[in-house]
Amino acid sequence: MSTMLQTEHLTFAYPAEEGESAPTAALEDVTLSVEKGSFVVVLGHNGSGKSTLAKQMNAVLLPCGGMVYVDGMDTKQEALLLEIRRRVGMVFQNPDNQIVANVVEEDVAFAPENLGIPTEEIRRRVDDALAAVGMSEFTRHAPHLLSGGQKQRVAIAGVIAMAPECVVLDEATAMLDPSGRREVLSAIRALNRERGITVVLITHHMDEALNADRLIVMNDGRLAMDGTPAEVFTQVDALRAMGLAAPDTVELLYGLRQGGMDVPLDALTVEDCAAAICRALR
């Protein structure tokens, strides 16, 4: 498989603001790569550098040190800027602040319009993108009357209309209620499965990471852990040291093992966990 995103010894610091003496370091020596077609979740506390990392992935921010490559393109090359942003779509936290137009279809059409795509093709892409997130019936609606989950799906459609290869969601579920989160996650999973779009999901909800191909944990601007959800979540002590908690399933299994029960640690889903406990009790 080829590489979608790649960072090499990436370092970044925000310029010093008024009243601060030194710039604030946000990323330090981050080296990672994301395979095409994979579903990667990035976890971490606020201030862990995960949002800064996201903004590096489509050249909203540029490295202070090290390199970032999008599909082989160096993000520092200004001539490639539009192409990089077309390939890596970005969805942000607040749904209200990324919807540009006051009709859903007009908003989804915004990016293709910017790219100078012919009218008939825009129409096709808008309809297709809205169908992909299950929002076709809201084509002519006013965005401010939609629910949070619906708005966020419109924002995703707006990105899909660029025909990107990768979508980065920067805490896109943080402001949603449980049903809104479910809507957005299932839309994103479908895009990954059915269209092969690479997904980088940045979140602080542990449970969103369970189905990922790969899990990256950020801490203090550094890459702290990198592996499959089972590999990462079973390191309960290391997670606790960073103030993060493993999912209930792993926490329970961990406790049971300490109590002398013979259970595996990597049964992440409720079903697997219940089955494993049953086996041990038998």
Binding site: L252, G255, G260, M261
Partner: peptide, 13 residues
């Protein structure tokens, strides 16, 4: 809570 379930299961065992 994880603790409560853990306690029940260990007692059971």
């Amino acid at each position: 809570t994880v603790e409560a379930l853990q306690k029940q299961l260990l007692a059971l065992k």
